[in-house]
């Protein structure tokens, strides 16, 4: 199923932060991991990823460093302490938001609260 681009827009940064909270990654790997984990639903475009990474870096949520792995230069990103805090608050916001959406679109019968 194809996901509407507009729907994905607001949640891309939280996905990137979630992946980087687990391990340090370079751009290409972020795209691949996202694709594999979401079973091909999230196909992040390079044109979206890199500006987003640079924006997160400007916010000091993540930081980057170059490393030579198997004779390949890779620009790795890792999450900062501030980035983890940002991720936690975004996560909470997301859960409240999706919870509210679900309770409405699924109707009262499915509401388990």
């Amino acid at each position: 199923m194809k996901i509407n681009r507009e729907l994905m827009k607001g949640s891309t940064s939280i996905l990137i932060l979630a992946l980087l909270a687990e391990e340090e990654m370079y751009g290409y790997k972020i795209i691949q991991t996202l694709k594999a984990r979401s079973e091909n639903i999230f196909e992040l475009k390079e044109g979206t990823l890199y500006p987003m990474l640079h924006a997160l870096e400007n916010e000091k949520a993540i930081e980057s460093y170059w490393e030579n792995v198997d004779n390949k230069m890779r620009k790795y990103y890792r999450i900062t302490v501030g980035g983890r805090k940002l991720f936690e608050s975004k996560k909470e916001e997301w859960q409240v938001y999706t919870g509210a959406i679900n309770s409405i679109i699924q109707g009262g019968a499915y509401c388990h609260a």
Partner: peptide
């Protein structure tokens, strides 16, 4: 320079 290097690295991975 930094952006060129990063995008080049990405294309090489592909």
């Amino acid at each position: 320079n930094d952006i060129r290097a990063e995008l080049t690295a990405h294309i090489e991975e592909m």
